[in-house]
Computed example of a mutant assay.
Amino acid sequence: MSSGKLADKVAIVTGGGSGVGEATCERLARAGAAVVVADINLVTAEQTAERIRVEGHQAIAARFDLLDAESINALAATAMARFGRIDVLHNNAVNNAPEVFHRDGGFLEMDSEVWDKIFAGNVRGQMELTRAVVPHMIAGGRGGSIINTSSGAGTNGQMTMSAYGASKGALNSMTHYMAVQFAPHKIRCNTLILPAVLTRGLETLFTAEQVERLINQSLLKEPTRPDDIAAVVEFLASDDSRVITGKLWAI
């Protein structure tokens, strides 16, 4: 039997093969959770899962594509088949493919196809996975915790990234609706509003100068690292936060 504040809980973490998701999978496992490492890149997902297993914790890898309904339903089914329940869902994956991300500009020049792809990956995918997971949480009768990943772009306007920012704003609003509708089943839903987090992925999207500028925009002028976010996810996944739901956590 596992020990720790997440003992005997089962957690799905999307985007678990790298960055924030990777750090979160490792942290939740060390806190006692059995972890489903879900990522579009099955190789990196399996690498994360294997590191967790080497440490003596439970983890499996699953390929997951936010844009593929079959993949979304299969992820929930895989978790249930392997562990028999789902207690935590960390909707962490986003559609940040460079060929889409770098075409996200101002509203007047926005390509509607880019807009649709970003919303599909950053809103619909999370909604569909939540709908696939919550019935299992309800049937389990133990409640649960859903933790969405948003961004400061969803609360602050800027000259570019219109679709990305609007999609994150939609996710923020969706969190409130989920919290209200799932509360009768003791299922909580909260969202993390992230700053620029120092990951390998960030370096592929922004120049070093842009990253430095993003860090300097924070109050503490300190870089945010993946494990900083993972620590907050661990708290929201645990019973320590059992009365917290419908909140936007700006980090």
Score class of each variant (00 low, 15 high):
residue 86 I to W: 00
residue 96 N to A: 15
residue 65 D to I: 00
residue 109 E to N: 15
residue 84 G to Q: 07
residue 122 N to S: 05
residue 72 I to C: 00
residue 56 G to Q: 03
residue 87 D to N: 13
residue 116 D to H: 11
residue 113 E to N: 10
residue 124 R to K: 15
residue 64 F to Q: 01
residue 78 T to K: 13
residue 97 A to E: 15
residue 63 R to C: 08
residue 66 L to S: 05
residue 47 Q to R: 13
residue 34 A to F: 07
residue 30 R to D: 15
residue 126 Q to W: 14
residue 74 A to F: 01
residue 59 A to N: 04
residue 96 N to P: 04
residue 99 E to N: 03
residue 117 K to V: 10
residue 112 S to E: 09
residue 120 A to P: 06
residue 31 A to N: 11
residue 125 G to F: 00
residue 43 V to C: 01
residue 85 R to G: 06
residue 61 A to S: 14
residue 59 A to D: 02
residue 105 G to C: 08
residue 29 A to N: 10
residue 81 A to E: 15
residue 75 L to C: 05
residue 96 N to K: 13
residue 124 R to Y: 08
residue 94 V to N: 08
residue 90 H to M: 10
residue 49 A to M: 09
residue 62 A to G: 04
residue 117 K to E: 14
residue 130 T to F: 04
residue 25 C to T: 00
residue 108 L to S: 13
residue 53 R to H: 14
residue 129 L to P: 08
residue 47 Q to L: 04
residue 45 A to C: 06
residue 122 N to V: 04
residue 112 S to G: 13
residue 53 R to T: 14
residue 112 S to C: 09
residue 41 N to D: 14
residue 86 I to D: 02
residue 39 D to T: 06
residue 90 H to R: 13
residue 128 E to Q: 14
residue 84 G to M: 07
residue 115 W to C: 08
residue 45 A to T: 00
residue 133 V to D: 00
residue 62 A to E: 06
residue 26 E to Q: 11
residue 63 R to P: 04
residue 104 D to C: 05
residue 99 E to T: 04
residue 46 E to K: 12
